[in-house]
Design a protein around this nucleic acid. Sequence first.
DNA 1: CGCCTTTATGTCAGCCGCTGCCATCACTAG
DNA 2: CTAGTGATGGCAGCGGCTGACATAAAGGCG
Lengths: 195, 195
Amino acid sequence: MVRWEPGTAERLQRAALELFATRGYEQTTAAEIAQAVGLTERTFFRHFSDKREVLFHGQELLVQAFLDGVAAARADASPLEVVASALRSAASFFPDERRPHSRTRQSVIDRNPALQEREHHKLTTLATTVAGALRARGIDEVAATLAAESGATVFGIAFTRWLREERSLADLAAEVLDELLTLAETAGQALRPTR
Amino acid sequence: MVRWEPGTAERLQRAALELFATRGYEQTTAAEIAQAVGLTERTFFRHFSDKREVLFHGQELLVQAFLDGVAAARADASPLEVVASALRSAASFFPDERRPHSRTRQSVIDRNPALQEREHHKLTTLATTVAGALRARGIDEVAATLAAESGATVFGIAFTRWLREERSLADLAAEVLDELLTLAETAGQALRPTR
DNA sequence: CGCCTTTATGTCAGCCGCTGCCATCACTAG
DNA sequence: CTAGTGATGGCAGCGGCTGACATAAAGGCG
């Protein structure tokens, strides 16, 4: 008889999501999640640095997708073109089959401020990482930060729409990015008419 | 003899900042902060919903400054023009005299991930509120969210530079916003050459 | 002036998130 | 067969945070 089966973190994640979705996040203790898969609270915290992380584990892969997209951009691409490439790459991490799962997960997050906080933090961290990659391409700090943060914003908006509408994330992200460019173009004509 | 002096929350905030700056955030307990001003832990949590909030209390005023700036914009202003107005209004909330205080506060935040999380969350919340005000002006949801979130990003970058350089926040914000427009313009030429 | 209501605080018990420390037990290499 | 490795259990304990109840100061009002 095996004492510990593999994939412990994944089983904990599944159990946690289910409990959070039914009882609610705050009404579920870490010990209960652990118990649901036959483990103890102590073990739970060995796999996840805190209770919220059980919902966010695996985001390093998304970050990597962004970085791959950055690396895939042509060497002479402008900052936002690089970001567009990153968005295309990231979008492939959310095929439509994943939508149902993402929806229940998001509904849990939307009902709890502490989880929203973590989510925003992850997005900002993502932006910071991407900004680093842009700087490594020779883009100056302000431009890199702006472009990366804009990319994260676009991704966030597109992702929210992806949860609601039955369209591909790649299409939505491209559309939202395009809208950002339009906004800037319009404002540019008004805010700096001399150029 | 007065049993409770006025300005309790403010005194707690000052004591907290001082303790955080010297001992560090995690090494300071809520009870210690309370004790430093002659109160109990329980009272601390009556004034602040959480330990972190002691560093973020008062941000409603900044939000209000943004909203005032939105209201001050001309009725026919484009989304990003409205945001530019909001940024000018918000910048006045950080006169240069406030820089030293903001610096020590920021150094505390920069040393603690949990505080950074809260800070990001507050910025995102700010963006959400501004987006609501933009929608109330008739701007559609995606454009409102994009513009507001971009405004928050610009503010964040400008604020970081304001802490380092001895320039006014208003100037820095205008400069960063201008750079965003430039980035978009450049990308627009590449990403949609047909228009 | 005395009474009553309101408001800020104190006290206490207790849950839960999270950590350090040490023991245990399966599996593996040698 | 033995020593070592890695995942887990058990336990004690701190700190964040809350609910319930008591208390005392401040203010209004007859």
